[in-house]
């Protein structure tokens, strides 16, 4: 096997998809060619380093399904506490509170921009009675809120930014 042929198999090996029929040839070349061996080992090391970064603990499907039971019609907005240490269940709760915030903000944004559809929840238009839209879109307001407080933007900051026009 040439080094070029080895290259073709290296992606398979790095990706954990090396066919049994190719393994003997691959390992034979690996033992024979120090250059390819060094190349391969360094790339395996890179992949391992990437995988060493801790992933999310919010992976429990059962917990997710349970937490999914949000009422999108009510659109309650909640912030989230930092480092409360209550594990994956509270983490999914925060994630879905974010979803509720997004839904609420979208509903409010549509109403404030005069683009509300007739089937919007009846409780959303009450916001328009006191709101003074400035033409700032929800997206720009969220970006502004995020810039003001990176890592801690919340619905209230976004709504404040949208109403104040910056």
């Amino acid at each position: 096997m040439s080094c070029d042929d080895f290259e073709m198999l290296m992606a398979d090996a790095l990706g954990g998809e090396l066919a049994d029929s190719d393994r003997a040839q691959f390992e034979g070349h690996l033992a024979f060619c120090a250059t390819c061996r060094g190349e391969y080992q360094s790339m395996v090391g890179a992949v391992e380093k990437m995988r060493s970064l801790p992933g999310s603990s919010l992976v429990s499907e059962a917990v997710a399904r349970e937490a999914i039971s949000i009422d999108v019609g009510e659109g309650r907005g909640h912030g989230h506490g930092r480092g409360n240490g209550r594990g994956s269940r509270s983490g999914m709760g925060a994630l879905y509170r974010y979803a509720a915030c997004i839904l609420f903000a979208f509903g409010a944004g549509y109403v404030l921009r005069g683009e509300a559809r007739s089937e919007l929840p009846v409780d959303v238009p009450t916001i328009t009675e006191t709101a003074k839209p400035t033409g700032v879109t929800l997206e720009t307001a969220l970006v502004s809120a995020h810039r003001k407080k990176p890592g801690g933007s919340s619905l209230s900051m976004a709504m404040t930014a949208m109403f104040s026009g910056n």
């Binding site: 949000i70 994630l95 839904l103 890592g151």
Partner: peptide, 30 residues
């Protein structure tokens, strides 16, 4: 609304994936 339902459905399907990719690269919950 149809929009709210649509966003909620998509969120239900993909929220964990999106969070997982983001957390892996960012390492911070918020």
């Amino acid at each position: 609304t149809p929009l709210a339902n649509f966003v909620a459905t998509r969120f239900e399907q993909h929220a964990q994936d999106v969070y997982g990719w983001a957390y892996r690269l960012l390492g911070r919950h918020h």
